[in-house]
Simulated assay, not measured.
Amino acid sequence: MVEVYIDGASAGDPGWSGAGIFINYKNGQVEHHAVPLGPMSNHEAEYEALIYALEICLEKKINMVSFRTDSKLIDDAIEKRYVKNKKYQPYLEEAVKMIDQLDLFFMKWIPSNQNKTADALARQAIRKNK
């Protein structure tokens, strides 16, 4: 099963932001994505990273994935399919629509020290904004 590590970062709140996505195909092949997002909050950047990663999976026909995030906000929202802050509702709806197109999807919260590659990619993406 393909593992997808995601992270969003923001230099300020709001501030220049980026999404980091690390895909491990478990066959020796990996992909790195550093996506500049423009000004937004850290939480918005986390959702953008999730959505961007889901788009990659759908485009590449990766139908069985295990996502990893160090964001409790994202993990809880996907697990419960609910957001407290209605500002994030459109992000959740878009993500769920894509998740429902996959054959198998898991989301797992991991500590930040296990998400260093995606974090570094998100920070690299922030620098690409300028």
Rank of each mutant, 00 (worst) to 15 (best):
I110T: 08
Y91S: 00
V96L: 13
R123F: 08
D103K: 13
G15Y: 07
I23S: 05
K80L: 12
A122P: 11
P90Q: 06
A11T: 04
N85H: 01
L104N: 08
Y5Q: 12
S10D: 09
S10A: 14
L102Y: 01
L58Q: 04
V35K: 13
E93Q: 11
I6Q: 03
H33N: 05
N115Y: 11
G15H: 07
D13E: 15
A122W: 05
E55Y: 05
I126Y: 11
M1N: 00
L37Q: 09
F22G: 06
R123E: 13
S41D: 10
G28W: 03
N27M: 00
R127Y: 05
L73V: 08
A122F: 11
K87R: 15
M107C: 08
W109R: 14
L121I: 13
K130L: 14
K61S: 15
V2F: 11
W109G: 08
F22D: 07
E59Q: 14
G15N: 07
E59S: 04
D7S: 07
E55H: 07
P90A: 00
A49Q: 09
G12A: 01
N42K: 03
K84A: 08
K97N: 12
V35N: 07
M98N: 01
D76I: 13
E94H: 05
R123Q: 15
Y82N: 03
P36A: 12
I126G: 02
A120C: 06
L104D: 10
